[in-house]
Write a protein that binds this DNA or RNA. Structure first.
Lengths: 204, 204
DNA sequence: GTCTATAGGCAGATAGAC
DNA sequence: GTCTATCTGCCTATAGAC
């Protein structure tokens, strides 16, 4: 495999990343703060100090850029989930690590990419819609697995099936980000997150 | 007081409402489904079968229209909360009625107006931002009052202060709407809402 | 109050030079 | 790969006739 550039390779975010990756970095931040309808090629181009046609060379449409954005975000998120699952610890500690992922996004003054896109779902191109749904489905599957582990261990207590609990954790954390952001108050998110997870521990 | 038209009066939504009210009706639906950056005067004008300058006669800028939107939505929401508070019943039944308000919005395939605006908060004009914050603050105050009632009655059980619980209820319901909408699945919202309120009742 | 006409800006996107 | 030039379309908003 040649390590030299094929036209549309995916690169990591790091010092001296490829142009495509830098475009994704800038666009990601813009979408997470302004929404898909609130950012433009012109915004990205200005921050990258290039002209808009250059962007079209890397991503031939805004829709394709959006798809790449979700793809990369999902991959990274899932990688982080795999990492959490690999390390030893109680199911509760894994849920705490999960909530921390959301908290870290919020502390960078951003909304979850897919939570933001979910808000503007009706205006999204079809492929982006599907990718957003997939992101939530992945999260749900991962959480249900951890919840089941916790139930078997006896460290977590919940009624109903793990999938339903997983869904309420996802929506609870997404909502906590959504509301905390206008207040610029990360502690507000943390308090809600703690309450969500606290509800899964046996009462003292 | 003359009942005849002063230029910018506020009217109720009903059969034969004033033009301003019909504009608000259409714009409200568009914002709740597409977001503030995803709707335009042209969309409203087309649905109302007028031209865009007509809209500017009633609301001289998009920002002012947005402010009027939040104002009306908040007033109606608060009125509904007063109505819930007036009728007798346990604190839990009031929380259930509260959650039902959100559920009704979702079942009309819409996001909460202020939840939607919270997502696009960074792109909002300053006055709209303040109005969105006020909406959440009102909700928080109302919920905290009901929660305190429940705690005194002994029908609700929660740790920490009522305000923190109120915040987590708001964000939980907003998030449940946010995530349920892409799935077009109201039952998903209901399940999460039940779980949020169920956490406030003594375990059997 | 609603219209026509229009301004002025920004959107996403393409052609073609370098 | 990035540029200049340009297209087409949509956006918010205003002037002024009716």
């Amino acid at each position: 495999m040649a390590s030299s550039t094929t036209t549309h390779q995916m690169a990591k975010t790091s010092e001296e990343a490829g142009t495509a990756a830098r475009i994704l970095d800038i666009a990601e931040e813009l979408v997470q703060t302004r929404g898909f309808d609130g950012f433009s090629y012109a915004h990205v181009a200005a921050k990258l100090r290039v002209t808009t046609p250059s962007l079209h060379y890397h991503f031939k449409s805004k829709s394709e850029l959006g798809e790449a954005l979700i793809e990369r975000y999902s991959t990274r998120f899932l990688d982080a989930l795999s990492e959490i699952e690999r390390r030893p610890g109680t199911a509760l500690s894994k849920l705490e690590a999960y909530a921390l992922l959301y908290g870290d996004v919020l502390r960078s003054r951003r909304m979850c990419l897919c939570g933001m896109l979910a808000a503007g779902y009706d205006t999204l191109p079809e492929k982006m819609r599907q990718a957003v749904i997939r992101f939530f489905d992945y999260n749900e599957t991962w959480l249900a697995r951890v919840l089941d582990q916790g139930a078997r261990e006896g460290s977590l207590v919940f009624g109903g099936d793990a999938t339903a609990v997983a869904q309420s954790i996802i929506s609870g954390l997404e909502g906590a980000m959504l509301v905390a952001r206008p207040y610029g108050d990360a502690a507000r998110f943390d308090a809600s997150a703690d309450r969500i997870l606290g509800g899964l521990v046996r009462r003292s």
